[in-house]
Design a protein around this nucleic acid. Structure first.
Lengths: 167, 167
DNA sequence: ACAACTAGTTGCAAATTGAAATCAGTTATT
DNA sequence: AATAACTGATTTCAATTTGCAACTAGTTGT
């Protein structure tokens, strides 16, 4: 990894770590979709990431401490990717990105519902979500509230509604 | 501009508009540095943007509604770039980016002070700053409080302190 | 033994980036 | 009036990055 940085500005440095078209997509899928394996990230990606790009980003993100990788005991070739404390602390940033995107881009209703809930929930909900992510990714104690489940349920409800199925 | 989008996810769409290494740098300089002309953005950039990239990004950002451009009456060739309501609403996102970068990257003390103040000030300060930006960029009424001046003063104080000058 | 699955790698064309030089029009200086 | 400096770009070109498709080498299930 090159260490040459353009400036010491925190916004610039954040951009240097995450300012490309795929890094935050991968973190998003790990965070909100709980995709933990290479294959899951590759094939369940809404955006259709290529395998070489995914491999490269996983390597870079792991090297820069935003992800960690451990072996999957059930399969000698599989690795399990986890968020780290720094990437868990991206929750407020991703919440703001979702909120902005929902207002100012042509986001779909189905994929916006999580952003809407996170925005309404505010910092308190983000904190609860971060506690839960620490349980899922860092072996911290499991909390009572599952923001993940709330978001998932809301998403499935909108999908069901829009396909005409009675929930 | 190509209209092909990878997915309707609000995070993805935000990334498609702003997820490159320069767009948010330009918006940052316009927002926190009040750089309004091409030359100012080009030469006062900490990061040293190239003129062809700057020209391209100003065009793209203007086309996508994040900036607007009007003629400068004092010089027939100059344009004055302004933030728009959508880009003013990036304040919370940039505040979160600064806060994250300050914690998780090797950001310099001098360039971090604004991020620190914005984080401490929270949503109330962000709202005040947005009101002020609407005055500076959208001809809205000028408010009493100037967050811009507060940030600038704090920055200059740190610069002065670190160069051994008595403030 | 064999098929399917695993995490990647390789090859290659296209697009993007970025440094340096250049450009044409505008303004300030002499 | 001539000229120098400044304006927002554009051009050129090499290097890098992207992304698709094919492929690899190892692992697991049948």
């Amino acid at each position: 990894m090159d260490t040459a940085q353009r400036s010491g500005c925190p916004i610039n440095l954040t951009l240097e770590m995450l300012g490309d078209r795929w890094s935050l997509i991968i973190i998003r899928d790990l965070m909100f979709g709980n995709r933990r394996h290479f294959r899951e990230l590759l094939t369940h990606s809404e955006e259709g990431i290529a395998s070489n790009i995914l491999a490269d980003r996983l390597k870079r993100l792991t090297e820069s401490g935003l992800l960690s990788r451990r072996d999957d005991p059930s399969h000698k070739q599989k690795g399990i990717y986890s968020l780290t404390e720094p990437s868990i602390q991206l929750v407020p940033l991703l919440a703001q990105m979702g909120a902005w995107g929902r207002r100012h881009t042509r986001a779909s209703e189905e994929l916006s519902i999580r952003a809407e809930l996170l925005e309404e929930g505010g910092p308190a909900m983000w904190a609860d979500f971060m506690v839960e992510l620490r349980a899922l990714h860092l072996n911290a104690p499991v909390p009572q509230r599952s923001v993940f489940a709330e978001l998932q349920a809301a998403y499935l409800a909108v999908v069901a509604k829009n396909s005409g199925v009675v929930v």
